[in-house]
Design a protein around this nucleic acid. Structure first.
Lengths: 218, 218
DNA sequence: TGTACATCAGTGAACGCGCGTTCACTGATGTAC
DNA sequence: TGTACATCAGTGAACGCGCGTTCACTGATGTAC
């Protein structure tokens, strides 16, 4: 174990009494960093401890087990994704423009944190997240998207009498596929991200060329 | 090592002289089976050997290392995906119908072999595949799709003067996102796969209600 | 027809590694009296 | 103001496990003479 410390990237100094919680935050941040740089498969309890400069056993002071750490990383990922899209939506007017801005930010986030994004949508959820039940991560983001699509449809942009849940699903999964495909096949002849995002949205919602012109001119 | 054999699911009998290659095929099949049942992260050289009922060292008779096995699994996956879509395209007439049939088969394959599909599109390719260069796996499938989209556009279905490469990209990534999202979030309120596939394609290509009617009536 | 030999298909033991988790512990620091 | 003590933040050693890979080997079988 002493070898673990000697090869540590940095050695941390002990927190003051009462500040024990700061290690928890440091562990999560380190774990997120490890996922982003090496992919979740390379993230072990020992690697996280090493990154923080702490003994492997110290992780158990704040998490039940290694799955607990991964669950925290996933939550953090969704929080930051939500922050990104919300920031992008501010100062934009009109539902269609907001939808475009949010989705573009969504994709940019995924492409800037590809390993984290992959981890957030991996097939088998970490134990604690899976046990949490129906409110799967990202569901709140989808609700936001759904309402926004409803507003776009309500504003008379695109076809009328549309199933907004279906439309929101199509938009979300398109963005999802777009970024995951770009991540896994970076050498493919990709059109610019902006074009792909805009074309996907406009076509799926049935935004006509007229409506496009109107919105753009506004 | 003797323990390895004692816990083997089955013990294989040695191939006849000249039939050594059969072990290679058995290893690939077993590795595909393991990926499908447990995900690629659980697939180790030793697990594959165990599955076949052979000593771990025997794998080196046919593969350079564990990455070689994974590369073979990936190739096999794309072969089977291509077989599925090709089969679905036979006996279908009209480019739009063929496109729909192919894409539906694509999605069905992914949903029937979710772990394998995830592995086929994972971020970091196995060493041998990555070294192979430009012709990334699945590129031939995309070429088929691209030509098909060109035929659809050429037949006057949807808008005219379209960028077929862009359209094919949008269709592919939409299907990709659809299946990956369904795999990673099985409890989401999904519309039927058939609906999602058809709506995606028709909307992206700009198939009008009139054209739909015409094609469906035919 | 008999036999020596090369080849083929695969084995067995061993290696060092990083892993998750357990258990008993240590030493600084704030607090009650 | 001094001191005993509880609490807090974290450590160190050890465990058993499965892993990829190496090396020297074995035993059956086909073939050349």
């Amino acid at each position: 174990m002493s070898e673990d410390r000697s090869t540590a990237t940095r050695v941390r100094e002990r927190n003051r009494r009462g500040d024990g919680r700061r290690l928890q935050e440091d562990l999560v941040v380190a774990a997120v960093r490890l996922v982003e740089s090496h992919g979740h498969a390379q993230v072990s309890l020992r690697a996280v401890a090493r990154e923080v400069g702490v003994a492997p056993t110290s992780v158990y002071l704040h998490f039940d087990d290694v799955e607990g750490v991964l669950a925290a990383v996933m939550s953090r990922g969704f929080e930051e994704l939500a922050r990104s899209t919300t920031r992008a939506a501010s100062g934009v007017d009109g539902p269609l423009e907001e939808l475009r801005a949010r989705m573009f930010a969504y994709c940019r986030f995924a492409l800037e944190h590809p390993r984290l994004y992959e981890f957030m949508f991996r097939g088998d959820l970490p134990g604690p997240v899976a046990r949490e039940g129906v409110d799967t991560p990202g569901l709140r983001s989808f609700a936001t998207l759904h309402t926004l699509v409803e507003r776009v449809v309500g504003a008379g942009i695109g076809r009328s009498h549309e199933d907004s849940h279906l439309l929101a699903t199509l938009v979300w999964t398109s963005m999802h596929g777009l970024v995951l495909a770009r991540i896994s096949r970076p050498t493919f002849a990709w059109a610019p991200l902006e074009v792909l995002v805009r074309e996907s949205i406009d076509r799926l919602l049935g935004v006509t060329l007229d409506a496009k012109g109107a919105v753009n001119a506004k």
